[in-house]
């Protein structure tokens, strides 16, 4: 593994090489936004979220902090704050993981297989357990309402977004062996 100081740059690079759209804030590497599309063949398909990524001084030893900035209806995502309760991003994070793992594997897995047993959004979890159809409808309505491409276009004040080279596609990569489980 490379020295920690380089990991931010390398990970960011790998993320962009995998065709993720990244919005930087004044070229700082501590905090940026990544556009994340709902996995194909899931009820979240068609939705797109701007996910805030914070890399602390201790990255990659400490996990990045991940939060949805536009609303998503999901048992393991806090509706207010957008915080994600996922073991691989919190408790079982390893410096071997990187940002590509998060966006290619962990988050898609979380959206495909929510874990209502350890809910952060109790209402969503309860609904999912009691009435799958109503739950799925609500997920889709949320996508419809809050997760359109226009919902995540950067605000005017934010300077220079990096439009080029990155139109997201190919989220169906299932070849990675690392699976995420919602936090216990």
């Amino acid at each position: 593994m490379s020295s920690p100081s380089k990991r931010r740059e390398m990970d960011l690079m790998k993320l962009m090489m995998s065709d993720y759209k990244v919005d930087m804030i004044n070229d700082g590497m501590h905090e940026f936004f990544v556009h994340f599309h709902g996995p194909k063949d899931s009820i979240y398909q068609g939705g797109v979220w701007k996910v805030r990524v914070e890399l602390t001084e201790a990255y990659p030893y400490k996990s990045p902090s991940i939060g949805f900035t536009n609303k998503i209806y999901h048992p393991n995502v806090d509706e207010m704050s957008g915080s994600v309760c996922l073991d691989v991003i919190n408790q079982t994070w390893s410096p071997m993981f990187d940002l590509v793992n998060i966006f290619e594997v962990f988050l898609p897995q979380l959206l495909l297989y929510p874990n209502p047993s350890d809910p952060l959004n109790g209402e969503a979890a309860s609904l999912m357990m009691r009435d799958k159809n109503a739950y799925e409808n609500k997920v889709k309505e949320y996508c419809e309402r809050y997760a359109k491409p226009e919902d995540i276009s950067p605000e005017e004040e934010e300077e220079e977004s990096d439009e080029e080279l990155s139109d997201a596609e190919g989220y169906d990569s299932g070849d990675e062996a690392i699976m995420g489980h919602a936090d216990p």
């Binding site: 740059e9 960011l12 962009m16 090489m17 070229d27 700082g28 590497m29 501590h30 990096d162 080029e164």
Partner: peptide
């Protein structure tokens, strides 16, 4: 990729 402190000076992916 070239950085100074925590700021990115250059990344060949950014046009």
């Amino acid at each position: 990729s070239i950085s100074c402190g925590t700021s990115l000076l250059y990344n060949n992916m950014f046009a």
